[in-house]
Structure formats: structure tokens, C-alpha cells
Design a protein around this nucleic acid. Structure first.
Lengths: 352, 352
DNA sequence: GCAATTAATGCAACCGGTTGTATTATTCGC
DNA sequence: GCGAATAATACAACCGGTTGCATTAATTGC
């Protein structure tokens, strides 16, 4: 049986409270006593019971992490990396992560997240994939539990951390335009997710700045999964054959896009360039390596936990919004459009 | 403030115990009373405090999940999928998953897992990546906490669930041999992991059955990461140029292998065939799609939780060892060796 | 109609800690 | 040497549930 505080007290002929204070480093207990207590604790392997501590202090040292159910969620390496980084950081601050496995049902899919938040089991929550009008926010606000979103939230009272979606997408798409691309398809994520919306906005901005009209026929919406990207790309290819580049709003969809293109007999990047978003490790192992916008995934995980910890400690009551830099990462999946290469080669052969 | 049991008791002029029993469905409380209690609970949104419940019942309804630190761990989609499935199943049985973020240090890397196991915070533990002589087993056995490993463990007293590593690998490698391959390299995982060892054994068995001698020069050890696979393949290519196929002990390493081969100017599968293991979703999105041995990842997650739940309920005291079927999944990354194709084409052109 | 059952509820201890306050022992000033 | 201040420790309530046993009320048997 695990030794308890009372056991220790009995052995040392002390009271529970003194033993407890000795371990907590309370200045009121004599140095000699503390030493004895600590030594004994070491000896018999005493560890305070976190459940009892939780009941007494109303703190659990656990952070709830709400991961949305599929289609995206836990099959996207982005989340795994994020999870790892968040877990690491949480541990550094003495917290553990409790996963809220999401539910399958469509609309009620947030119930388990809300239950966890309301369970007194966690000191704070990390939430992911905010929607434009996210029903969870109102519920959470009523609970006075600190929480932070991964991804931008409109409500100014809510803390969040996000990669620079709009600017990142705009910058990368501008590079495509710079290469000579004019017909650039866009595979978006679910339209009600803020990240998806922001990346699409970046795409639109880049087009607008280059004076290229936005053509809805070459914009399709996926669901942030391989399959989603694959199907969306197929749908676009059915009607449009003159695109020379594709911007997929995340890497995983870009993989599906690449497959759809190849199946349509289009070579990457010779016929069509492909650009992703996220910078997951697999991107550079594709053939050709996928050009993407690298998010600082580890830093996102770290930062979000740090902000949450601050709020849990009550140090900072005002909401924090943090946008982390992203970085365009060129790679073999993008190249100038074929008509430029052809012109160039014509030109060269003409000169020879 | 959250309503407590006492609040409910006060409102209804009942005692805590009756209210508690009413909610628990104890047959001793009158039906009318139970209805009143349940109605009120519904009305004021009463939810029992799981921390207090945990203290009283010594059950937390939480399963600890120990994920080893890098290099593999949470950057491998295999684990993410596993995690999702385990989480889903856990929820179905009323449990949540508490992640044990692993530590960076090499040898002491298991400390946090053991602390979690010993923390009274979890009712059971899921452990991953067993090593051949896994130090955790002895520690866990002393704690009388149910635990199950993902992956085979030698100790017969320990429960585990695993894919059919040896047979799966043997079968797949045999298919390579069947295609005509003789010089098949093997990129193993860390040699002290049972999964790695078992898959390598499958490779050896297949060779032996075909009468092909095992050549240690074309066996290299990776660490189950892309980079590890890449480097191991490079090392092999440095001395050996006559291999016609590679078996990587997991898909993620296979991606690294493919990259190394391409960088060496070798085409897949024309010059070299590549075979992976795991069946992660990305495999089929590679170019060419990666042939692999598909593990039933979701079922692994489901089964492991079910076994653990059974053991936590005390229904089954004897250890359970479960081997789940794997399935060879052919794909574009494997083909007959080039000398066969060349012979074939020579033959054909000769015939014409 | 009264003892014996049975049904319904209440009391109080307990889970293992934390923490406000009371108590005892010691030291200090003068 | 005595009262006051201070240091060290103990007591007891509390966190919010669960659970064994006692108690009371209602029902049954004869």
C-alpha cells in the first residue's frame, strides 16, 4: 500500500499538518524536522496522492486538450507534433495533458470537450480548430476556466495562438504568381474554420495584388484530409484543365492533390505546381518534395501551454493573442508554368 | 459555483447519502425519491466531482498512456492513429486518456511513465514500444496496477497486444523474393525493441526459406524515423550497389529510404523496390505508393483498451496476449527486379 | 394487535491531503 | 524571574463524494 501522510506522521510522531508543511517547505517548521520528514519520505517512497491534493486545493495540475474528431484531428501529423510539444511544455510546468477524445456525431461533437471543461478535472483547456462562430466559446466563458485556442478566434476576450495564416498564404501564393502562374487553384478547408478562412483570404489577397481575378471555378473545398484534397482536386480537374498551380490549405490535402494530378496524367511540377501549408515533416519526403508554408509547430505547442499556465496562475487576466511567424519553404513541387519553360526552350533552340 | 451533493441534499431535504445512492441507482431508494433527485440534478446541472469521487472510490476513470520520447513517438502517424482509436474506445467505456509526455534524457526516459503509474492518478496504463529487457516491467509489477503493452513482451505474466510482426514481415519479404529479388536490404529499427527484432526475424525467415544467405552488409539499423531510414539507406548504398529491393521496418523509415534511393539516382521500383511496414495513411499517397504490411491500427487501439478495461474491472486476472492479423498491401513501390524486366524485354524484342 | 420483516432514509466515518487557528515550548527583554 | 513575543507543532475543519451500519417507518404474518 502507498504510504500516506498519516503514516509518515505516525512514524515520526508528528501531526499530519506538520508533515504536510515540511514537505511543502513551509517556513514554520523547524529545519531539523523538515530534514527528518524529507528523509523518511525519500526512504519509504512517499508521494502525495494527487487526487487528494486535487480535492483539497481544487487544482489538478492537468490541462485538458480538446481534439476535434475526424476528418482531420488525430490523423494529421500536424496535430501529433503539436501534441508532443504541448505535452513536453506542460510537463515542464508540472502539468499533464488529458485528452478529450472527440465524438463522432456532427453537431454534438463538442459535448465531450465541454464536459471535460466542466468536470473539475482540469485546471485549464486547450482547444483546437476554432470555427468562425464557435459555440464552445460562450459555454466556456460561463465556466471561469482558463482556456486558449489553437487558431484565431474573433472574440477579443478569448486568448489564442496561431500561425500567420493570411500573410503566410499570401506570401507563398505571391511566389507562385512571381514564377508566372496565373491560373492557381485553391483547395480550402472547411469554410467555417477560421484557419481555413484566413488562408483562403491570403490566397485572394495575393491574386488581387497581382490583378488576377478570383475564379470560383478553381476553388474547391476539402476537409483537411488526404481524401478530401484528392476529391476536391478531382472535382476541379473535371471542368478546368488550364490550371498551372494549386494551393492546398494544408499539407495533408496537398498529398491528395498530388495524387489526383498524377492520376490525371499531370506531372508535378512540370505541368502543375503544388503548394501546401503547415510544414509537416512528410512534406519534404514527397516526390517531388512539397513546397509549403512552414508553421512553427513546436513553438505553437510551447506557446499555447505557456499562455495557459500564466492564465491558470492568475498572473494575467487579460486575453492574449499571439501570431507566430511562418516561413515559405520552396521545394521541388513548384516551378514556373510550362508555357514559360516551353517559351524559354523555344527561345533557346531558336538561338542555337 | 458548481452545485455539490450537499446542495442537492439541502434543497430536497434529504441526506447526502440518499442523494448519492439515488444517482447511483441504488435499489434501496424509493422510485419517487430517485425521480426527484434526478430531475433536480438535471435542472441545476449537477455533475459529480470526479476528483472527490476518485478519492472516495480510489478509481479515477483515467487510463495513462505512456508514449516514448523521440525519435519515434509522436511524430509517427502510426501513434497518432493508435492514440485516436484508443481514446475513442476509452471514452466508450467511460475512461479518459492521460498522456505521459516522455522525457528527453536517454536512460531515465521512463521515469515520468513510472511516476504516472505510481501516482494514483490512473486506473491502468498503456505502454508502448517494449524493449527486449524492459526495465519498466519489474517496476510496474510491484505496483499492482493493471497495464498492457502495445507490442510483444517476453515476460509471460504481462499482457500485450501486437500486430503479427514476424509473419507479416516474412510474408511480405517472401513476395519480394517471389518477384525475383535476391539482394534485399533491411532497414531495422532500434535493436532492443521487440517489434524491430520481430520484423527483422520475419525478414531472416523469408530469406532462409528461400535459401538466400543473410548478408549483414545490407542490413542497417535506423530508429523508426524518416531521417533514420534515410541515413541507414545511405550507409548501405555506400558499399553495396547491387541491391534490388529494400525492406524498411516501418513506413516512416521507408519514406527516408525512398528519398535516399532517389538521391542516389535509383528509380523506384524500376531499379529498387521498397517495402514498408505499418500501413499508415500516407503510404498510399507516396509516389509511387508504398507497398507495406498493414497493421490494424484502429483495432490495436481498441483491443488494447478493452483488455485493459477488463483487467481494471478485475474480471480477468490472467495475462492476455493478443496477436492481430496484418495484411500485405502491394503497391507501386515494388516490382520485379530490373534484370528480370530487361530479360523479359530482350526476349520480347527478340521475338518480334 | 403485536413481534418480525422489509423498505427507505439518515448518520458518521472515511478517502488523503491542505490550511486556519489554537496550543505548547522556547527565547527574549528588562 | 516573569510577562510578552516568537517558534514549533497539534487540532480540527474542510474539499465532495462513497459506503457500512443504525434508525425509523411501513408492511407482513399469525
Amino acid at each position: 500500500m502507498r504510504p500516506t501522510l498519516q503514516d509518515m506522521a505516525n512514524i515520526l510522531n508528528l501531526s499530519k499538518s506538520t508533515v504536510s508543511r515540511a514537505l511543502a517547505g513551509d517556513s514554520r517548521v523547524a529545519e531539523a524536522t523538515r530534514t527528518k520528514v524529507v528523509t523518511l519520505a525519500e526512504q519509504i517512497g512517499y508521494r502525495p496522492n494527487p487526487i487528494a491534493q486535487g480535492l483539497a486545493t481544487r487544482r489538478t495540475n492537468i490541462i485538458g486538450l480538446a481534439v476535434p474528431y475526424a476528418p482531420r484531428s488525430l490523423s494529421d501529423p500536424f496535430y501529433l507534433e503539436f501534441l508532443g510539444a504541448a505535452g513536453d511544455t506542460a510537463m515542464k510546468y508540472g502539468y499533464s495533458l488529458l485528452l478529450s477524445a472527440a465524438e463522432r456525431e456532427g453537431s454534438g461533437g463538442y459535448r465531450s470537450h465541454m464536459e471535460l471543461a466542466n468536470s473539475a478535472r482540469v485546471d485549464g483547456m486547450i482547444l483546437t480548430e476554432p470555427r468562425v462562430l464557435d459555440e464552445r466559446i460562450e459555454i466556456l466563458k460561463k465556466m471561469d476556466l482558463p482556456f486558449v485556442f489553437l487558431g484565431m478566434v474573433e472574440d477579443p476576450d478569448v486568448s489564442w495562438v496561431s500561425g500567420e495564416n493570411t500573410r503566410g498564404a499570401a506570401f507563398a501564393v505571391a511566389r507562385l504568381i512571381e514564377l508566372g502562374h496565373r491560373r492557381i487553384a485553391c483547395i480550402t478547408g472547411p469554410s467555417d474554420q477560421t484557419a481555413s478562412k484566413a488562408r483562403f483570404k491570403g490566397y485572394s489577397v495575393a491574386l488581387a495584388e497581382a490583378g488576377i481575378p478570383l475564379d470560383r471555378n478553381i476553388v474547391a473545398s476539402g476537409d483537411f484530409t488526404q481524401t478530401g484534397g484528392y476529391q476536391a482536386m478531382k472535382a476541379v480537374l473535371e471542368h478546368e484543365s488550364d490550371i498551372s498551380a494549386v494551393f492546398a490549405c494544408n499539407d495533408v490535402m496537398a498529398f491528395g492533390v498530388m495524387r489526383a494530378l498524377r492520376e490525371a496524367g499531370l506531372a508535378i511540377p512540370n505541368d502543375v505546381s503544388v503548394l501546401g501549408f503547415d510544414g509537416i515533416p512528410f512534406a519534404e519526403y514527397m516526390d517531388p518534395p512539397l513546397a509549403t508554408v512552414r508553421q512553427p509547430i513546436l513553438e505553437l505547442g510551447r506557446t499555447i501551454v505557456e499562455i495557459l499556465v500564466e492564465q491558470m496562475n492568475g498572473k494575467n487576466k487579460c486575453p492574449i493573442h499571439k501570431v507566430l511567424n511562418v516561413e515559405f519553404q520552396p521545394a521541388g513541387s513548384i516551378a514556373p508554368p510550362s508555357w514559360i519553360s516551353r517559351e524559354a526552350s523555344t527561345c533557346v533552340s531558336g538561338a542555337v
